[in-house]
């Protein structure tokens, strides 16, 4: 009782919470309404008095601006990278959590060190590297460098360390190979961590801009954020269309967020506590 008396009354706190929520949501409401608006004021404001809905902004995007390919590219890249991270980070996490051999600590150190490297610093060599490897402007350039992320390895290692090892031991005694152990025993136990990791990796790659931007050059290889950023310079694209394209980019993340909201927030909270 004493604690409640010190804080503002419940209704007042709800009002404050809702106003803050409005500050964070208002631009997105504007985005949604704008993308569906038939008429826009020149300054980019909406004429709410004469507001009417239309889907034309969306349909014209696919017919005129060719947004179909970037959407497909984004889906392919984000999905493949997510699957890759789930598999490879689990494998690496397992070895780092369970096995003992010389140099293991060095590998663990490399993971933690790389976590701290600012990625934008190496855009020039990454660009040259993809050229030398002959994968510039291809799916490989957008996928290969991101298949294993240090954060993923770290998360999986941390999670696997908390699991009891008894089942692995008995499987090993029965002659199961390390691969079977990871696949049949560790993976199923890691489901919660894998869920967190997948959502995280998918979001990051779906939204990623700078690498897809510098590692591709042809229109057919663009991902959605790149296409979006370059659309605004087009003479024939107006604000409602730009908003519609933005909605297409924001929609999957929003759906993921609504469905996995707890997973995402808990993932960040627990990840932060362990790190």
């Amino acid at each position: 009782m004493t604690r409640h008396s010190k804080s503002p009354a419940r209704p007042l706190r709800l009002v404050i919470a809702a106003s803050v929520a409005f500050i964070f949501l208002a631009p997105f409401i504007y985005l949604l309404l704008g993308s569906l608006a038939k008429n826009f004021n020149l300054a980019g404001t909406l004429d709410l008095a004469s507001y009417s809905f239309t889907l034309a902004n969306y349909t014209s995007l696919f017919s005129q601006a060719g947004l179909y390919r970037p959407v497909v590219n984004s889906i392919i890249v984000a999905l493949v990278v997510t699957v890759g991270n789930v598999i490879f980070c689990t494998l690496c996490g397992y070895v780092l959590a369970r096995r003992r051999f010389r140099g293991k600590n060095l590998v663990m150190l490399s993971v933690v060190m790389v976590l701290m490297i600012p990625t934008h610093v190496v855009i020039i060599p990454m660009y040259l590297l993809t050229n030398w490897l002959g994968i510039f402007d291809s799916y490989l350039a957008l996928i290969l460098p991101f298949l294993v992320t240090p954060l993923g390895v770290f998360l999986m290692r941390q999670y696997i360390s908390t699991l009891p090892a008894d089942m692995e031991e008995s499987a090993r005694l029965e002659g199961a190979s390390e691969w079977t152990i990871v696949w049949k025993i560790v993976m199923p136990l890691c489901k919660p961590a894998i869920a967190v990791l997948s959502v995280q990796v998918f979001l990051v790659n779906w939204n990623s801009f700078i690498y897809p931007f510098i590692l591709t050059s042809s229109e057919s290889m663009r991902t959605l954020p790149v296409a979006l950023a370059l659309l605004q310079g087009y003479q024939s694209i107006n604000i409602p269309q730009l908003f519609a394209a933005s909605m297409i980019s924001a929609l999957p993340t929003t759906i993921l967020f609504v469905v996995f909201s707890r997973r995402i927030t808990e993932g960040i909270i627990s990840g932060a506590l362990k790190g």
Partner: peptide, 19 residues
């Protein structure tokens, strides 16, 4: 045929020719 874009065609051509 190969396709280029104005936003980064310059870069792509430069790389291709530099090799």
């Amino acid at each position: 045929l190969g396709d280029l874009t104005w936003s980064d065609g310059h870069e792509k051509i430069a790389i291709a020719l530099s090799t």
